[in-house]
Amino acid sequence: MKPATEPDSPARSKVQMILRVNGESHDVAFVPHKTLLEVLREDMRLTGTKHGCELGECGTCTILVDGVPRLSCLMLGLESDGHDIRTIEGMAGACGAHPLQTAFAELGAAQCGYCTPGFLLAAEAVLARDPTPSRATLVEELGGNLCRCTGYLKIYEAIELAAARMQKGTPDA
């Protein structure tokens, strides 16, 4: 077998870092080869970020880095240094759920809900760029998020509903 680094190798000693997650600074220590996905879930207990492959092949682990959706399974915890990380836990504010969350719930866009955090964050980024996305835009921009339950249709409808409400400035029904 390929030699793994021995357990006492210096590459295995933890680094201490301040991570900006959901608007708060967290002092976290983790080994340098941990992905942000692992740091969030295992070291910060933010288990809202899910995983389905850990190889960039499903989109389930999507988070926002400075507002841009990225795959937390293919980025190191180290690499989030100096960036603003947003996870599903930070999507709802003190005054309630994000319009996308409400619309997803109302229209049944979350069946098992496992892909949902990734879709919501990806959708949030889409709306930030294009507040009234066409179906074609949604197909393209959500092409990196797999869902085995919904067939995507309710997800599109929910994003469109949220977009319309956000345009009108009414957060929910």
Binding site: T47, I88, A105, A110, C112, T116
Partner: peptide
């Protein structure tokens, strides 16, 4: 709305 929907959309 599904009884578990809000928990699912908020990551809970």
């Amino acid at each position: 709305i599904k009884v578990d929907a809000m928990a699912k959309v908020t990551g809970q």
